[in-house]
Write a protein that binds this DNA or RNA. Structure first.
Lengths: 146, 146
DNA sequence: GTTCCTGCAAAGCGTTTGCAAGATA
DNA sequence: TATCTTGCAAACGCTTTGCAGGAAC
């Protein structure tokens, strides 16, 4: 199944009308494979000669987040909210402090620890958010020679 | 050593002038034991009959964050930036999805995992950010009877 | 006296909202 | 046709900034 039909089906299942803009936004997020800002989506659409208003993008993202087709995330030192396609696969991010590149990691060390926290702190853990900040391979190389 | 002199010393060590406002902001953050917004600090000062402008608080927090006396943090679904006193002790937070209460946990399961990430992903990990979202004890009780 | 800090007012920026026109079902 | 979606313009809330007066060193 290609992305267009995948996205169309997803929208129908959520009882949302299938509009050009919604399809485009979802396809962009799938292709990106990482969180994007409303603004970034706007520019990608513009580059692709798709006219759309920024406020429409915000409304679309809000709606999609409500239906859990996308996930809204915020990172440290990033003013804008970012939105990622919800692949339903638990993951974390590596965020390069130098170039800000975001890389996904699909392994997670926290399953056991969550139980421990639940017991010790009497806090019922529903989820967690974990990011690693540091330097990606490229930036490490650049730093060596600068 | 009481908080006033602790804070005064810290400011001097950072070559910052010791002003009433800076001392007050730092003391509030120490007392709070959790991250506060600029706005929250403003209201605490006002309640204490200390007149100050919001922009001054932002400037103070920015300066203190630069000198690493405080840490600027952002949480999911929280529009405002929060600032916490930097106790230099590694910790994480439990964030209640119901009442938004923030609780500190000082244990951390990630030291070993960071090494793994460094090796496997060729990403030099400098730090990480981890929060647990769920329900605190009080909210769990309330949910039972509602 | 010099440098840094602060209050005030205004602007900046990301995001949200009201409303009328337009598209989807 | 009824309902939902969109573009446009304006407003909103948090944060930053310019500038002149004031405080710390």
């Amino acid at each position: 199944m290609d992305n267009t039909s995948r996205v169309t089906t997803a929208l129908r299942e959520c009882h949302l009308k299938v509009t050009k803009h919604r399809v485009n936004v979802l396809k962009i997020l799938i292709r990106a494979q990482k969180p994007l800002s409303a603004d970034a989506i706007y520019h990608l659409l513009m580059t692709d000669r798709q006219s759309i208003d920024l406020s429409t993008i915000y409304r679309i993202l809000e709606t999609l987040a409500e239906k859990e087709l996308v996930i809204k995330v915020t990172f440290e030192n990033e003013v804008k909210n970012l939105y990622e396609y919800n692949h339903q696969i638990h993951h974390h991010f590596l965020i390069c402090l130098s170039c800000n590149q975001i890389t996904k990691v699909e392994s997670c060390p926290l399953r056991d620890y969550e139980e421990l926290v639940s017991e010790k702190m009497k806090f019922r853990v529903i989820g967690h958010k974990l990011e690693f900040y540091g330097y990606c391979e490229d930036c490490q190389k650049k730093q060596k020679y600068s």
